[in-house]
Design a protein around this nucleic acid. Structure first.
Lengths: 228, 228
DNA sequence: GCCCCTGTGACACGTCTGTGACAGTCGGCG
DNA sequence: CGCCGACTGTCACAGACGTGTCACAGGGGC
């Protein structure tokens, strides 16, 4: 990655956009800006930024939709800006594929801290393998090994594990996992996620009945734990 | 790592303003200044500082009022400057939404220390974890640890703690907590909140019988205290 | 000292999760 | 073209766990 992070800021409000651009420049970033989702998507193709800061409330196609479109072709990190401190937005945001979200009004240095955190995480991820205890996930080869032995994961199991390992230590709700792994909304809940988690545990955990890697977060969902 | 903090100093006395500006610049801050509340509010919109240092005694709209107006739309940190060491001012100031409070005459390096303290606090809060004494709340992982040991909180206990920690130092009534945590209104009162608080204390407090974190506010409800 | 408020333990109910079985779907291969 | 196997989604169920209620005791405030 370039020594100076290159950001694309998509925000329609002139005052906020200019202010954030100024602030982020002062924090040592290179910044490109766009005032609409359409412009943002175009600029994205031209300029290849390292990270996108994206307002949710945009005229025309909204931030969530922009997020989804970007995700269809690109994996670069996205930080959502949302006006409401509403948790619902947070959930929808992460489900649409964002890496982080920040509630407006936002201080420049807070945004900067989040940006750096996401970029750091990205660097870790871009390495081709991740290790969790005796488990090694090779993203390039798309293989998972336990104690050096190759695990035969099915496509869905693998996607589930990859999504969990994209955010190690972070609890993900069943809804979030459904969107991330299965890419569809459920209105009611189903045992689908549970069933897949169970199958994954059977292959991944040393003692599937008392899992140490894929932990249940009661009332929420699941979380991939990093062993100390 | 520290990017240069950008401050807005609102102070009508020319001598003090110039002196503080000079001093703060020497401490490594970037400083914008305004000589009145009106100018300050305008500059705020344009420049988006990281923090505001605000004199209480201003011609026209006074500091408290400026503070309240800022708070209506913004959450950025505010440090109040006052000439009087009067305690009443402290109370009014903190009630109007200030984050800290410094009595004039103030040395530049003292103000600098306060500024850095407030900014640090802001950065901590902006991350997904919060610390109260030996207690660490990780909002992303949905875990709570005490002295590094993982506490097994139940979903409701966790929600209760999260809601309290969203407003540290603020007393919340049982009604408010019922709405926030249980999401339903009760007409009569019940011991429900008390019971949950008790269970939470049993896990969170060092000495549950004399709680230091989750304090009872008689006749009102409960409050999460930040240890000094 | 009195009364109201709060802390506390027990208990029964309800919700959530893990689990095994089963059926539908899809792709590969003969 | 059809069979077969693997994979996946659904369902039902049992058990664990968490939760709300109640009664009562203790204590602080007026």
């Amino acid at each position: 990655m370039a020594p100076v992070p290159f950001l694309l800021l998509i925000e329609d409000d002139d005052a906020i956009r200019t202010a954030l651009e100024l602030s982020l420049s002062r924090q040592g970033h290179r910044v490109a800006t766009a005032a609409s989702g359409e412009d943002g998507l175009l600029l994205l193709k031209e300029q290849r930024p390292d990270l996108i800061v994206l307002d949710v409330m945009l005229p025309g196609i909204d931030g969530f939709e922009v997020c989804r479109r970007i995700r269809r072709t690109d994996q670069l990190p996205i930080i959502l800006l949302t006006a409401r401190s509403d948790d619902i937005d947070v959930v929808v945001g992460l489900e649409s594929g964002a890496d982080d979200y920040v509630v407006k009004p936002v201080q420049g240095r807070v945004l900067d801290a989040r940006i750096r955190a996401v970029l750091r995480r990205g660097e870790r991820e871009s390495t081709d393998s991740a290790t969790y205890g005796s488990l090694v996930i090779d993203r390039a080869a798309m293989t998972v090994t336990k104690n050096g032995l190759d695990l035969q994961l099915t496509p869905t199991e693998l996607r589930l594990l990859l999504e969990l390992s994209r955010r190690p230590g972070q609890a993900l709700s069943r809804q979030q996992l459904l969107r991330l792994v299965w890419e569809h909304d459920y209105l009611g809940d189903s045992r689908l996620v549970d069933a897949c988690v169970q199958r994954l545990r059977a292959k991944v955990e040393d003692v599937p009945s008392s899992p140490t890697l894929i932990r249940t977060v009661r009332g929420v969902g699941y979380r991939l734990d990093v062993p100390a």
